[in-house]
Amino acid sequence: MLELKAITKRYSAIPAVRGVSFALKPGEITGYLGPNGAGKSTTIKMMAGLLDPTEGEILYQGHPIRKNMFAYKAIVGYVPEQSEAYRHLSAWDYLFMVGRLRGLSDVLLRAKVTELMHFFGLSSEMDMAMASYSKGMVQKVLISSALLHDPDVILLDEPLSGLDVTTALIVKDLLVLLAREKKIIIYSSHILEVVEKICSRVIIIDKGIISADDSVENLSHLMNLPSLEEIFSRLVVSEDPGLTARGIVETIRRES
């Protein structure tokens, strides 16, 4: 189990995440929702060990991860929010580098990388520098790199960003299968339909504070609302979207 206990993260004095607590269980896909700047990526980065919490503790199997960060990082797979990869390398070179850093043998890597590139439809482009890839192609490489070492904890920050419909469907099915293998999966996204479809549990964060944490069915029942979109709107959206849209149109029409 991966547990966050009263996690706070401040950048200088500004809090990005405030006293966040939740626990992720194996075999569960948890959706992590929130508007821009809510603290989703910061939480995920802290769970990946890339950022240190200002306050609070993250526990894996009951032990603080900071006490044995190397061992913890070895079982984590992480897909970042933006396509942050070494784009001067080819997909093949990048995946080999990540695999080697993870301690995988070259023979095993050769088999894994070849097959993953085949499944993601990148076999013919895998020797090209990623600088020439589209956003979706880079995303496929990043998903492959996160799964190369068969991690126990999978942290996904907008993993479907830029992916085509077929690959998005593959990734969704892939996550369901990985959850069946008792992996801990957290899925941060803006796309509510996907979260509603694949996540057994939803955590909604707004301005660094958790505002809801339950299954979609329970939330729907408790709030008496039919869909996740409406639950999200009720909990997070403070302004009238229609009014804001009209304001934008007026602004772009302004001539003096």
Partner: peptide
């Protein structure tokens, strides 16, 4: 650095 934003991969895979 080359693509500083991508150095998370070294930080995530860092070993002792």
């Amino acid at each position: 650095p080359v693509s500083l934003e991508a150095n998370w991969v070294f930080r995530l895979t860092e070993r002792p």
